[in-house]
C-alpha cells in the first residue's frame, strides 16, 4: 500500500477548498433520491468535471457550497454523498 494512492471518496467527505474530479455518480434505484441524482446530473455533475467545496455551513459541514464549472450550488451533505470524486494531489 502506498501513501500516494488517493482514494475516491464521496463529495461530502472532500476537504474544503481542495479541487477534485468527478469520477462517478451513485444512482439510487427509485424515489426521491433518484430524482435528486437525475437533477445533479442535469446540473453538470458528470464524470470529468472539476469540483471544489467553496464554503461550509456552521458546524457539521452542513450545508456545503460546491463549485462546478461556472456555477456554485448549495447542497446538503446527503445530496453531495451521491457524487464520487477523486481529489487532486
Amino acid at each position: 500500500m502506498s501513501a500516494h494512492v488517493i482514494k475516491n471518496l464521496p463529495l461530502d467527505l472532500l476537504p474544503e477548498r481542495r479541487w477534485a474530479t468527478v469520477c462517478d455518480v451513485t444512482i439510487p434505484a427509485t424515489g426521491v433520491d433518484h430524482e435528486l441524482v437525475l437533477r445533479l446530473v442535469e446540473l453538470g455533475f458528470v464524470p470529468g468535471e472539476r469540483v471544489r467545496i467553496v464554503a461550509e455551513g456552521i458546524g457539521g459541514r452542513e450545508p456545503m457550497a460546491v463549485r462546478v464549472g461556472h456555477t456554485t450550488f448549495a447542497l446538503r451533505r446527503h445530496e453531495a454523498s451521491f457524487i464520487i470524486v477523486e481529489p487532486h494531489p
Binding site: 426521491v32 446540473l43 446538503r76
Partner: peptide
C-alpha cells in the same frame, strides 16, 4: 423520515 432538500444555485 423524509429528508428536506436544499440543492440550490448560488449564481454569480
Amino acid at each position: 423520515s423524509e429528508r428536506s432538500t436544499l440543492l440550490m444555485e448560488l449564481p454569480s
